[in-house]
């Protein structure tokens, strides 16, 4: 087993870190959502990769194959993808509402306004 055989997992890690970094470092709310998406996608790839059985075929019962990939992680991740879509939709709709309320989607601006409101109370 060489480092390249774990290619999928390297991709997972790279995507995960890129996404995670974007969520934390970006001040733009839309970019945060995009980062979150990348972060989640990396996990999807991880699940899909783990289902692969070396030498196995697609899990469809045929006569000329005995070894199948594990379909369960793929099915699981379908559910997770649905959840991620819902999260993204909710997040983006919140961004729209925030834009209406604050006229900005930059975290710094919003924070400044919020702080003023906190103090005005």
């Amino acid at each position: 087993m060489n480092a390249f055989s774990l290619f999928n997992y390297w991709i997972v890690i790279i995507l995960m870190m890129a996404g995670f970094y974007t969520v934390i470092a970006s001040g733009n709310l839309v970019k945060k959502i995009v980062g979150l998406n990348i972060f989640q996608t990396s996990v999807f790839i991880m699940y899909i990769s783990m289902g692969k059985v070396i030498g196995g075929t697609a899990p469809i019962v045929t006569v000329n194959s005995e070894l199948y990939s594990n379909p369960l992680p793929h099915v699981l991740i379908l559910t997770a993808i649905v959840v991620a879509v819902a999260t993204t939709a909710l997040g983006l709709s919140l961004v729209i509402r925030i834009k209406e309320a604050y006229h900005s989607i930059e975290e710094d601006d919003i924070l400044a306004i919020s702080q003023r409101e906190d103090e005005a109370e």
Binding site: V23, L36, F39, V43, M46, I98
Partner: peptide, 29 residues
């Protein structure tokens, strides 16, 4: 209107948390 930002913040943190759980469950699997 600060409820919106609070909710957004929770969404980001909560999703990160849930994804971490997902990763953990994946490794266990």
């Amino acid at each position: 209107r600060r409820a919106l930002t609070a909710s957004f913040q929770y969404l980001i943190m909560g999703t990160i948390g849930a994804t971490f759980i997902l990763i953990g469950v994946g490794i266990l699997y």
